[in-house]
Simulated assay, not measured.
Amino acid sequence: MDTLRSLRVLAEVAELKSFSAVAERMGLSPAMTSKHVQHIEARVGARLLNRNSRNVSLTEAGAQYLLTVRPLLEGLMEAETQLRTDTLSPRGTLRISMPVWMSNPAFAKILTTYHQENPHVTFEVDLSGRKINMVEEGVDLALRVAFKLDDGLIARKLNEVTFQMVAAPAFLKRFGYPQTPDDLSDAPLLAYSKVASDGRVKFGGADGLDAKLRPVMVSANETLLHSAALAGMGFVMLPNWVTQDDLASGALEVVLPDVTWPKLHIHAIYADRSYLPAKVRSFLDFLAGPKGLTTALP
């Protein structure tokens, strides 16, 4: 049996989570599709897929195996493309996962500029904010501020993000302008559920100060928290990438402007491979370059 074809069948089954769908896509019978997977499992001596009448999923061994095999298959496809076109250029669908707060005009402009320079690359963007399995879900790149790096993945630092507390001018006129962190005690907070669901906000710098506010809305969606702050519902901690236009227009104001607010780095997370697909490599270099995150955003 053709091992290379079997590897391609395995990768397709892992992506589509369906033997019948892969059989239709690759012009095989369901039985032959299953035999290709069994051939690889017999070759490596491990079960790579969990399957029953309704579900197909990778085993832990299967996920680790595909982490190594998938880039080899993608590299082979790129090599074949190069032979056909005499040019190795970025192409295909680039699957990205990133936080909701990055869905702003400045980052949309970055994507637009990259696409104009690389028209054969299309984007599939996940903004759910959930923890993902990059290998099993076929995600090429994840942009994260806070993360736990899984085995087989590496992180590339791109830019720094400042998280500031802001509020609408009309709200500040009603509540008053805080002069110290203590003035925020029991103040209404629009709380990001993954960080400050209990209302406690930590300040940056060496002073180690924090404040305990009163959550009036808790959500994992930064866009909703941002909109509620603009409407005057309460204080909110948001990245400066999100609030820069609002601060410039006066729609929002920085609270305690002399306080040192926390600064975090945004990283690009991707599979640790010797040979990245051209679409991933070129987009990483673009993000780190003069038109990307290092200069296009504050």
Rank of each mutant, 00 (worst) to 15 (best):
R8K: 10
V9C: 08
V9Q: 06
L10W: 07
A21I: 03
A21G: 11
A23P: 04
M26A: 07
A31Y: 12
K35W: 00
H39V: 01
A42H: 14
A42Y: 12
A46V: 00
R47F: 00
N50W: 14
N50R: 10
N52F: 04
S57H: 03
T59N: 01
A61K: 09
G62H: 06
G62C: 09
Q64D: 12
V69P: 04
R70S: 10
L73T: 04
L73G: 05
E74D: 13
G75T: 02
L76R: 10
L76C: 00
A79T: 12
Q82K: 08
L88Q: 08
R91P: 00
T93K: 07
R95P: 04
M102K: 05
M102L: 15
I110S: 09
L111Y: 14
Y114H: 11
Q116F: 11
E117I: 03
N118D: 15
V121E: 02
F123Q: 05
F123V: 05
V125T: 15
V125H: 10
D126M: 04
R130P: 01
I132Y: 04
E136D: 15
E137K: 11
E137Y: 04
E137V: 04
L141G: 10
A142K: 07
R144G: 02
D150L: 12
L153P: 02
I154A: 09
A155T: 02
K157V: 05
K157W: 04
L158G: 05
N159H: 14
E160C: 07
E160A: 12
V161T: 14
T162R: 11
V166R: 03
V166N: 10
V166A: 08
A168W: 01
F171Y: 12
R174W: 00
Q179I: 04
Q179N: 11
D186L: 06
A187N: 08
L189P: 10
L189C: 09
L189K: 03
L189G: 10
A191C: 06
K194F: 08
A196C: 09
G199F: 03
R200T: 13
G204S: 07
A206M: 01
A206D: 02
D210R: 03
A211V: 13
L213C: 06
L213N: 00
R214S: 14
V216P: 08
V216D: 05
V216A: 09
V216L: 03
N221Y: 12
L225A: 08
H226F: 14
A228V: 13
A229K: 10
M233D: 12
M233V: 03
V236K: 08
V236Q: 11
M237K: 13
M237A: 11
N240M: 02
N240T: 12
Q244L: 06
A248M: 01
A251M: 11
E253Q: 15
V254P: 07
V255E: 03
W261Y: 15
H267A: 06
H267W: 10
A268W: 10
Y270P: 00
Y270L: 15
A271S: 14
D272P: 11
F286G: 10
A288D: 15
G289K: 07
P290R: 01
G292S: 14
T294W: 01
A296C: 06
